[in-house]
Design a protein around this nucleic acid. Structure first.
Lengths: 193, 193, 193, 193
DNA sequence: TATGAATGAGTGTTCATTCAT
DNA sequence: GATGAATGAACACTCATTCAT
């Protein structure tokens, strides 16, 4: 029950934050959307920021879980391709959360969970680059910088996809698939030795 | 004199916003840093948001001016290279503003000037891609998506540079030069036909 | 409990507004007088103006309730006499509210409740004049104009009573009783056919 | 020139105050309407309130001048009739000032000039009643109370006239003439011995 | 006198957080 | 655990007034 209620609040918070952003999202509005009293929120979250942190944490865990499940021995490029496709599939299923991940990252960068999300994602991409370089599949480069750039490119592609979806009638599924492909093409061309 | 005072306030706002972000930056603090009374701010800016908008506008104008000055006939790739070098030089000179451009964009995306900044930058990169594709220099791709990705990559490289500068003792100049080079290498490899 | 607190705030607001007027009455002062935090005011009132509106509304309802209770079949002049006596009795009991009704009406006439108070009172007097004219008890006249004049006369009598009370040692009870009598005499002489 | 500029500012202030009331009238707006700089206002008026006081003072002087010009020996009732006709003629010529006299009186009753205006007007009506009573033309009554009531009735008639004018297409001239007649009829019926 | 940029005290309102029930 | 009324610190913004030019 408890875990369930925390989840209900997380979902409600996502819905409220998507409209207007984290700062405009009042705890009252989140509680109302979740169908609980404000006080109840504080039984599950230290404070308002903790809700946002939790949202990032859940998303980070999803990604980590997926990445952990990838066969270790797969070439770096293939891991990248799989991850991109899976990741954009996630976005297609839940664009609201995707938007929050984009929007709220900058301003609240000092929150541990948000910083952690960014660092973990960048770190994974960096390690992938290192792995590829180590095996001679990728050209030499500043792996950390390249990983950071790849993360930025990934986020930009997500942002572009969501915006394109809002402004056209194309199904988000198709838009994100194209983005994943384009991104992979871009990465593979620039990384391969 | 008037333009001068507006400029003083802009500079002070940048300094205050860099620490703690836009939301934590009080008008009182900005006024104090600028050495003027709070009311004076409102002689030059409609409201607090307008200060941030102005900051973005000034930066956008710098970039537009630079891009306007580039010889029309230059190949797209060379324009890109020049722009990247110049842009990272800008960041090296004024990392504080660079950080604001990164941090405040997401949350306040609805402000016209901020949206305008992003769209103009993305638009320029998109047009560069289209130009290169038109002349057969670049491989075919979804230009809008590619432009968006390039902008995201650019910003990520800026963010990484500033963070690296804060955490190491390397001169920012060198860090940004490397970022510009790496970014150009990445772009050229993935774009060239 | 809630209704009780709203009432406490209303009373406190009356006390604060009486000294210095609505504009000089700060929400902090009202909260302090009510013994609650500022924020509590906003749990019961949309904003500061809503407090004043509520004050007028309560007074209007008192008057409407009284008028509704008057026997329909009573001659217009007797209704008028009863109302005047009752109304001045009200003022004698609560001169502070009486003063607010006088003082704050003009400047904030655009607030619906304040406009409503004035229009309802004038409207009742107008309908009384029409009733008397219809039954041949009153001489013909422009009923709307006469009703408006009567309201003005009534308010002036209230104002004069309160001022006289402040400047002399006579009990307010006696002063208002005289005012009611004088007003009734004036109305009856000028209205009777 | 100086007197002229003071007069220009007075006129501008009347125009600005009529829309939105004294409190909403900023000195900037008054200066703009008058075509002078804000600072100039302070060469002619101690402060913002002094402008309003001046407006009342000018109006009071107009009324005093008129009343001084009335033949001493005229019966009280005839003086009243003449004054009412003249006064409503004034309103018909300059309804804006009339409205200010009504609207701003209550809230700022503590300003000497405003209090003075009200007291002088009430005092004149009171002395008229006393005069009529002294000569046996009027019935006995509490003269001060009656004078106050008459002033309230007069103001209400002015207010009603202006409102009727705003809401119908009848010329203000006709409306005020009717109001003056009705008021005189009402007063004479109730006052005559 | 005239100007208008600069001033800064003053205040309505919000909203995350608490805690008695 | 759940509730939601109460809290009060915090802050953007206004505008009458001043004074150097």
């Amino acid at each position: 029950m408890a875990a369930n209620k925390k989840e209900i609040i997380r979902q409600a918070a996502i819905e409220v934050i998507v409209e207007g952003g984290f700062h405009a999202a009042t705890t009252d509005a989140i509680a109302a959307k979740a169908g609980v009293a404000v006080g109840t929120i504080y039984n599950y979250f230290r404070n308002k920021e903790a809700i946002l942190e939790h949202i990032f944490q859940v998303e980070l865990e999803k990604r980590i879980d997926y990445l952990r499940g990838l066969p270790e021995e797969l070439p770096a490029l293939e891991k990248l391709e799989l991850f991109l496709q899976w990741h954009f599939g996630l976005i297609a299923q839940d664009p609201a959360t995707g938007r929050i991940l984009l929007r709220e990252r900058s301003n609240l960068i000092n929150l541990p969970a948000i910083r952690g999300y960014m660092e973990a994602m960048t770190g994974y991409l960096t390690s992938l680059v290192e792995e590829g370089m180590g095996k001679g599949q990728f050209r030499p480069s500043n792996a950390a910088l390249t990983g950071a750039i790849m993360f930025g490119a990934l986020e930009a592609a997500v942002r572009h996809s969501i915006m394109a979806w809002e402004q056209t009638s194309r199904p988000l599924e198709l838009i994100t698939q194209e983005a994943a492909r384009e991104l992979f093409l871009l990465f593979s061309r620039s990384l391969l030795a």
